[in-house]
Design a protein around this nucleic acid. Structure first.
Length: 117
DNA sequence: AAGATGACGATTG
DNA sequence: CCAATCGCCATCT
């Protein structure tokens, strides 16, 4: 792993990402793009993924609840133990088959719909 | 400085 | 959600 260097500019963006990820309820998941969109940077979904990479340093970030738009566990290999991501999802009642979340649209949690009040 | 990379996504065939 | 391609944007080499 390479040391992750945060510029002052995106540090704020990272914090916003963490804030949203921590708000994801148990048994629910969301996508990188949804978070980016909620933060007003829907074209920077890749940066959300980058933020999650940095989030690995924070113990209370449920990164396993963030997947790509297809419900695929694309980031599982970035965990200390790749199987941990799937295991944690299973413990929350989310079915995972071959790195693919089952009933994705059912467990999907959209921050814009849930937090937009 | 220039090209490649990536925990992404939308579009097109 | 099959695959090929393009757009995006910070970071790496």
């Amino acid at each position: 792993m390479k040391p992750i260097k945060l510029s002052e500019q995106n540090a704020d963006f990272f914090e916003r990402v963490y804030e949203v990820v921590k708000l994801i309820p148990e048994g629910r998941v969301t996508s990188y793009g949804a978070i980016a969109n909620y933060l007003g940077a829907k074209r920077s979904s890749r940066m959300v993924g980058w933020a999650m990479n940095a989030a690995h340093q924070h113990p209370e970030i449920p990164a396993h609840r963030v997947v790509n738009r297809l419900g695929l566990l694309t980031g599982k290999m970035h965990f200390a133990d790749p199987d941990e991501m799937e295991q944690r999802l299973l413990l929350e009642g989310i079915s995972v088959k071959n790195d693919q979340i089952q009933d994705f649209k059912v467990v999907y949690w959209n921050p814009m719909e849930e937090l937009m009040l």
